[in-house]
């Protein structure tokens, strides 16, 4: 039937095929938007082409090394002893290992740190090695102590004799 103008009703009846096509397109667009919303994380692109939620996830990782300032809160005797010697800038956990579990526990004595393995610990830093900077104190342990443990002469917190 040729188009002759006239009422709105006639217009809709005559362009039904176009309206159906438009409806299909709109439905397709809606499906696309739905899927897109479901797949893209919230606030994606806030700082760049990534999900800012990832920053919070990474920040939630638990800490293992409590840090120098935490140790000296309680162990001020050791801290004072160390501060006057050449180990003043060596952090507690550099020798004693990660102690966040000990520091954060309600009862720290329940998470008592193990004593460091002196035979390996001192040697890792102080064994004579040509690649170490010359100003760093080094010894050939086999000749230096004759097999005796380092801490039988040196105080580890303040390593004078």
């Amino acid at each position: 039937m040729p188009w002759k103008g006239g009422t709105l009703r006639q217009f809709f009846r005559n362009s039904g095929h176009l309206i159906r096509l438009a409806a299909v397109l709109i439905a397709g667009l809606c499906v696309f938007l739905l899927i897109r919303t479901a797949l893209i994380p919230k606030a994606f692109g806030k700082y760049g082409h990534y999900s800012p939620g990832a920053l919070d996830v990474i920040r939630q990782r638990p800490v293992s090394y409590a840090g120098q300032d935490t140790c000296v809160m309680c162990h001020d005797g050791e801290a004072k002893e160390r501060a006057s010697g050449r180990h003043a800038h060596v952090a507690c956990e550099a020798c004693h290992g990660p102690q966040a579990a000990h520091a954060n526990a309600d009862d720290p004595s329940a998470h008592k740190p193990r004593l460091p393995d002196v035979a390996n610990l001192c040697r890792r830093c102080h064994e004579k090695d040509a690649a170490k900077p010359a100003h760093f104190p080094q010894v050939v342990t086999a000749e230096h102590s004759g097999g005796a443990a380092c801490n039988s002469c040196h105080q580890p917190h303040n390593p004078h004799l």
């Binding site: 990782r61 800490v63 090394y65 840090g67 550099a94």
Partner: peptide
């Protein structure tokens, strides 16, 4: 160590470096 530096601690490697 993003989980450490965002709460005012230094990284684990820097914390434990004996010579700085």
């Amino acid at each position: 160590c993003y989980h450490r530096i965002t709460q005012g601690l230094t990284t684990a490697c820097c914390e434990n470096c004996p010579t700085g």
